[in-house]
Amino acid sequence: MSHHLFILSPADSPIYSLTHHSTRAAASTVSPLASNLPTWSTSAFAGTLTALSGASSVAQHTPSGPVKMGGGQDRHVIQMIANASLDAIEDVMRKENAMYLRAVDKFNEWTVSAFVTPGNVKFVLLHEAKNDEGIRAFFMEVWEMYVKAQLNPFHGLISSSAFDGRIRASAKKYL
């Protein structure tokens, strides 16, 4: 089960991103509709479609052997989903005062939770399983680390390996 965290600036640019593979098993509830997808890709655009629709475990047979494609783990697709979920996040955050927006959006198999700091920086987390309290605690820790990192006038967030390490530790702890 994997988690994807993005820290986005108010202009929607990612400041930091993290992919965390949790050891906990995902409660996979695969719909019968989604299983056994056909070997179906005759052009590159079909590949785009496959990836974007989140089809999982589709083996594409090429002369060099079967190639696993899509699988919902395509980084670009994850980013697209995170970006698209900003619509829902913005909608909710304008109406509610809460910083932690629980399961604010769902897309394909992903649930999107978000955390909006007072400076309008958004933490977007894509996760599969329900883990409200864990995610809330994770967000609070990320926020604290983010604020501390921001206090340093000499260091950008992206370049700080300490920040990265702590986020990873926190993700391990809560997710």
Binding site: F45, L52, D87
Partner: peptide, 26 residues
């Protein structure tokens, strides 16, 4: 007013259309 989601789907629409175009050509 969900522009980004629209964009996501439009990409798929384009993929779909282009797929048809390319396949039709082939």
């Amino acid at each position: 007013g969900y522009k980004r989601k629209e964009a996501y789907l439009l990409r798929e629409v384009l993929g779909c259309v282009m797929d048809l175009i390319v396949c039709g050509r082939e």
